[in-house]
Nucleic acid binder design. Sequence first.
DNA 1: CGGCCGATTATCT
DNA 2: GATAATCGGCCGG
Length: 203
Amino acid sequence: MLERDFFQGPACQVAPLLIGKKLVRSYNGQRLAGIITETEAYQGTEDQACHARVGKTKRNQVMFGEAGHAYVYFTYGMHWMLNIVTDKVDTPAAVLIRAIFPIEGLEAMSQNRPTSAFTKSWLNGPAKLTQALRLDGTINGYDLCSTEKELYLEDGVEVPAQALRLSPRIGLGSTPEPWLSKLWRWELDWNIASTIINQKTGF
DNA sequence: CGGCCGATTATCT
DNA sequence: GATAATCGGCCGG
């Protein structure tokens, strides 16, 4: 299980380190898990794409708190997004988990999210994985380093830095420069992920 | 695979 | 009252 120290740096430093880690969810006594394959960093009140740009609000207050907690918010009238808080207390920062490669509890996850189950496009989106893992507002603020282990991270597979693709964050609408173009999105190609995970786990 | 479009409502101004 | 860290369906290549 990953400890608090892992999460304490700036979001743009922690985000690439999260690629290859295993996200584990305990739900109804079942273990649901996947390898993280895509992340985005949101860092500080100056980042005009970050929810914290307007200061602390009821919604974003978790981002101002201790690293290693879940920041889960609702958007577009229907979707939940999972972020992991990073950096120091009072320095708002978080990493959005955008995609996972499913490896445990596939049957249960396919019940939670029947749409395109077992295909490449099953869990390749931030709102898709929260459906499969049954994450919503009730877990906002949850400590991923706590002993309850409802949601936490484990070491997964080793990912060579050169396998990561960097690009601008997406879905930012009218966010001004330079924030719009910052390369704060990290992605592991599905085929490379498959190969690496296959070698490592025989999956 | 890429682009456009409508859905649907909590949150913030 | 406007906006949104998205998704799925439908289109064209």
